[in-house]
Simulated assay, not measured.
Amino acid sequence: MPSAPGLVVRPITGPDEVDLFNTLPYLLNDEITGDLDAGRRRPEWLWVALRGDRVTARAAWWSRPGDARPSTMDIFDAPDPGDGRELLRAALPAVSGDAVPPHYIRFLPPDWKGDERARRETESCLALLGETGARLFVERLRWEWRPGTPLRAPSGRLEFRPPRDAGELIDLMELVLDGTLDAYSRDDLTRMTPREAAEQQFEEELARYAGPRDWWRIATRPGDGDPVGFVVPAHNGYHAIIAYLGVVPAHRGHGYIDDVLAAGTRVLADQDAPRIRAATDVTNTPMAAAFARAGYETFQHRLDLTWSS
């Protein structure tokens, strides 16, 4: 697919060109082959800009296994900004068709704003994506807990059990959306009811994670069994994760989030998980503080960009 003199923009031909695609360094490179094997990526979703045999820009999209369309654009590198612009011009419509492109995410070191090279490369890529209509949606903190980190001892203030059924968890998910500080949840609530948002998140995200549902925990008060909150420990195909947690509005302000997070972490620690990961919005300071108190450390930041319809 020629775009400019001496430039070829095209998807890779197959797994045999993964090494070519990985010419440019990025932390997801080691996952590309496994993702292709697992059906999380397709060759037609991995694009390169080439001058001869030199990769001057690239982009990639990701989905859950078996999905017909990608849900995330998670790689875009453009050492040559002009070639990156041409790559986006060709690849975005080819991958997304007439639909709004899926969101773009970029993983960065925690100090990326103070790292001149990382900041320069990131700002260049964001500017190119901005030319196509993408806008920064949220910056997120990525957290990691490692074995050997002290676990908060059970306080006895709450009891924990698996959900009785999906409906019970969805009911609590609906409740915790009241006053949510999560950017994606707040955006959902501009377009749908809290119930619809909870059902959609359950069906499109939580229900599709690996890991048994008996890992999931409902937190209740001893005695009356009143639900206080919940936590969803899971596995995303790469790592053990805390997928979702929350405390219902009626029980906020008592520090229960620490007990709830500790219970979820303990479930995964008991499975000998080599690491446990989670993510929060930078602006969600109460949740970020809870992860920090639980011994999680920030190992990356993530920038999310979205396109408007």
Score class of each variant (00 low, 15 high):
Pro154Cys: 03
Tyr256His: 15
Val8Gln: 13
Gly6Tyr: 11
Asp187Ser: 13
Asp182Trp: 02
Ser185Gln: 09
Asp111Asn: 13
Tyr256Ser: 00
Phe299Tyr: 15
Gln271Phe: 03
Asp178Pro: 02
Ala127His: 13
Asp77Ser: 09
Ala57Arg: 05
Trp112Ala: 04
Val232Glu: 03
Leu141Lys: 12
Asp115Ala: 10
Arg191Tyr: 06
Pro147Asn: 09
Ala59Trp: 04
Glu139Cys: 06
Pro70Ile: 00
Ala166Gly: 05
Trp62Val: 05
Arg142Val: 06
Gly66Leu: 09
Glu144Tyr: 05
Ile242Cys: 07
Asp304Cys: 11
Glu31Cys: 07
Ala262Cys: 05
Val55Tyr: 03
Asn284Glu: 00
Ile170Arg: 09
Gly34Arg: 13
His103Leu: 08
Val8Asp: 13
Ala59Glu: 04
Arg64Met: 14
Thr265Pro: 04
Thr280Asp: 04
Asp258Lys: 06
Trp112Gln: 04
His103Cys: 04
Pro233Trp: 01
Lys113Asp: 10
Gln200Ile: 04
Asp16Cys: 01
Leu303Phe: 12
Ile12Leu: 11
Pro150Ser: 08
Asn236Gly: 08
Pro286Met: 02
Gly229Phe: 04
Tyr104Ala: 08
Gly130Ala: 11
Arg106Cys: 11
Arg293Glu: 03
His103Glu: 07
Pro222Phe: 10
Leu88Lys: 00
Leu87Phe: 07
Thr132Gly: 00
Ile32Leu: 08
Met73Val: 07
Ala262Arg: 01
Asp37Phe: 06
Val176Thr: 15
Arg58Val: 06
Thr56Ser: 14
Thr23Asn: 02
Thr220Leu: 14
Trp145Phe: 13
Arg142Leu: 15
Asp165Pro: 03
Gly133Ser: 11
Arg54Val: 15
Pro11Trp: 02
Val232Pro: 06
Phe76Gln: 02
Asp272His: 14
Glu196Gln: 15
Leu20Lys: 00
Trp45Lys: 05
His254Lys: 11
Asp67Val: 12
Ala153Ser: 13
Pro93Ser: 01
Ala94Tyr: 00
Gly39Met: 11
Ile105Phe: 01
Tyr296Ser: 13
His239Ile: 02
Arg213His: 12
His251Asp: 11
Glu44Val: 03
Pro286Ile: 01
Val228Met: 12
Arg146Lys: 15
Arg41His: 07
Arg191Asn: 05
Thr283Pro: 00
Trp62Pro: 04
Cys125Leu: 05
Gly133Ile: 10
Gln271His: 08
Gly130Ser: 11
Arg41Thr: 07
Gln200Val: 06
Gly34Asn: 11
Asp226Ser: 15
His235Ile: 06
Asp83Ser: 13
Arg195Gln: 12
Glu174Asn: 07
Ala4Leu: 14
Val95His: 00
Asn236Lys: 01
Asp30Met: 06
Glu168Pro: 01
Asn236Ile: 04
Trp47Asp: 08
Gln271Gly: 01
Thr285Glu: 14
Phe137Ser: 08
Trp145Thr: 07
Trp143Phe: 14
Asp171Met: 03
Val228Gln: 08
His103Ile: 01
Asn29Met: 08
Leu24Val: 00
Ala288Ile: 05
Val55Gln: 04
Leu136Ile: 14
Arg302Met: 15
Leu50Met: 10
Asp188Thr: 06
Asp178Thr: 14
Asp214Phe: 07
Ile276Pro: 02
Thr180Asn: 03
Asp67Ala: 15
